Amino acid sequence: LQLFIKTLTGKTFTVEMEPSDTIENLKAKIQDKEGIPPDQQRLIFAGKQLEDGRTLSDYNIQKESTLHLVL
């Protein structure tokens, strides 16, 4: 599923993930694309901070959802 990642600077980029992927996987993918170390990434969806060990489906993140990346 394609997700939109929006940064505080207003930049938006996309990543391609599976619902079974963990937040950790997502942070690694963001590191590949943007060079931001996972330990500096905080991801927010629907007002909640996402925890590394959980999956996208745990948070009911669907295709074309927008996640906010806070550094």
Rank of each mutant, 00 (worst) to 15 (best):
N60Q: 04
T22E: 03
I61D: 02
I5Q: 00
K33W: 14
K29T: 07
K33S: 13
K63H: 14
E64K: 06
K48R: 10
I23D: 00
L26V: 14
I44T: 15
V15G: 00
S20F: 15
K48T: 14
T12V: 10
L50G: 01
S65P: 03
L8Y: 10
Y59L: 11
A46R: 06
E51Q: 08
A46Q: 10
K48N: 13
T55F: 06
I61S: 03
F4T: 15
K29P: 00
K29S: 05
L69D: 00
T22R: 11
E51Y: 05
F4K: 08
P19I: 12
T7M: 11
D52M: 08
F4V: 11
Q31K: 12
G53D: 11
G10P: 02
F45R: 03
I61Y: 02
K27D: 00
L56G: 02
L71M: 07
D52Q: 06
T55Q: 08
Q40D: 09
I23S: 02
E16R: 12
L71K: 09
I30P: 00
E34S: 10
E64P: 05
S65D: 13
G53R: 08
G47V: 02
I5D: 00
P37W: 14
L67R: 01
L50H: 00
V15R: 00
E16H: 11
F4E: 05
F4I: 15
N60L: 03
T14N: 10
M17F: 07
P19L: 07
L69I: 08
K11C: 04
F45I: 06
I23M: 03
T9R: 07
L3E: 00
D52A: 08
S20K: 14
H68E: 11
I36A: 09
P19D: 11
Q49H: 15
E64S: 04
Q40G: 12
E34Q: 12
V15N: 00
I23T: 04
I61Q: 02
K63L: 12
E34V: 08
N60S: 13
F4H: 15
E18G: 11
I30G: 00
L43E: 00
R42S: 09
F45H: 14
T55L: 04
Q40L: 10
F13I: 15
Q2R: 04
L1I: 15
A46E: 15
E51S: 07
K11V: 13
L26Q: 00
K27C: 01
S57P: 03
K11A: 10
E24S: 11
E64G: 14
L56I: 11
D39S: 06
S57C: 03
P38D: 08
T7W: 11
I30V: 12
K48F: 15
S57V: 13
T9D: 12
T22N: 06
G10A: 05
L69E: 01
I44Y: 14
K11Q: 08
F45Y: 11
K48G: 08
T9M: 15
I30S: 00
R42Y: 15
L50F: 02
D52H: 08
E51H: 15
F13V: 04
E16Q: 08
D58R: 02
T66H: 10
K48E: 14
K27V: 02
Y59G: 01
E18M: 10
T7C: 03
N25C: 04
Y59K: 01
I23H: 01
I36K: 02
T7N: 09
K29N: 12
Y59S: 07
T14D: 08
I36G: 02
Q40P: 02
D21Q: 12
F4S: 06
P37G: 06
L67S: 02
I5Y: 01
R54I: 09
K11G: 12
T7L: 15
L50N: 00
L43D: 00
A28Y: 10
V70P: 01
L71T: 12
A46N: 15
Q49S: 06
N25D: 12
L69Y: 02
P37I: 12
T14F: 08
G35V: 02
Q40R: 12
Q49M: 09
H68R: 15
K63Q: 15
K11T: 14
K63A: 15
I61A: 03
V70E: 13
G53M: 11
I5W: 01
L1S: 05
T14I: 12
P19H: 14
D58P: 01
A28V: 09
D58I: 04
F13S: 02
P37D: 11
G53K: 11
P38M: 14
Q40K: 11
D58E: 05
L26A: 02
T55N: 09
T12Y: 13
M17T: 12
Q41F: 11
E18R: 10
D39T: 09
G47F: 04
L26H: 00
E18K: 08
H68W: 05
T12A: 14
G10K: 02
T66W: 12
N25W: 11
L3K: 00
G10Y: 05
P19Y: 06
I44M: 10
D21I: 03
K27G: 01
N60E: 08
L67T: 03
E24G: 09
T7F: 11
S20T: 13
I30F: 01
P19W: 09
E16F: 09
D52C: 03
L69K: 00
L69C: 02
Q41T: 06
F13P: 00
E18A: 11
K6N: 12
K11H: 14
H68K: 08
I5S: 00
K27F: 02
E16A: 14
E34A: 10
K6C: 03
T66P: 04
F13Y: 07
L3Y: 04
S57D: 14
I23A: 02
A46P: 01
Q2N: 11
T12E: 15
I30T: 01
A28N: 15
N25K: 11
K63W: 07
A46F: 05
Q2D: 05
F4Q: 09
L3D: 00
Q31R: 07
I23F: 04
P38T: 13
I23V: 08
I5N: 00
L56N: 01
M17K: 01
D39N: 11
E24Q: 14
R42G: 14
S65Y: 12
K33Y: 10
L1P: 07
Q62C: 03
D32Q: 09
V15E: 01
E64T: 05
D32Y: 08
L50R: 00
P38V: 13
T9E: 15
Q62I: 10
H68N: 07
L71R: 09
K33L: 09
A28I: 13
L56M: 07
K33F: 08
T55G: 04
T12I: 15
T7K: 06
Y59N: 03
P37K: 11
M17V: 15
R54N: 09
L69R: 00
P38K: 14
G47N: 07
S57R: 11
K48L: 12
I36H: 12
K29Q: 13
L8T: 14
N60Y: 06
G35P: 02
T7R: 06
P38S: 13
Q40I: 09
T9L: 08
K48Y: 12
L50M: 15
R42Q: 14
I5R: 00
L1G: 06
E64Q: 10
T22H: 09
K63C: 03
Q2K: 09
F13T: 03
D39V: 04
T66Y: 10
D52N: 15
L8E: 13
G47Q: 06
E16K: 15
E64W: 13
Q40S: 10
D21F: 05
A28W: 13
N60I: 02
D52Y: 05
S57A: 09
I44N: 11
S57L: 10
N25H: 15
K11F: 11
K27A: 01
G10C: 03
V70C: 04
G47I: 02
L8M: 06
L8W: 07
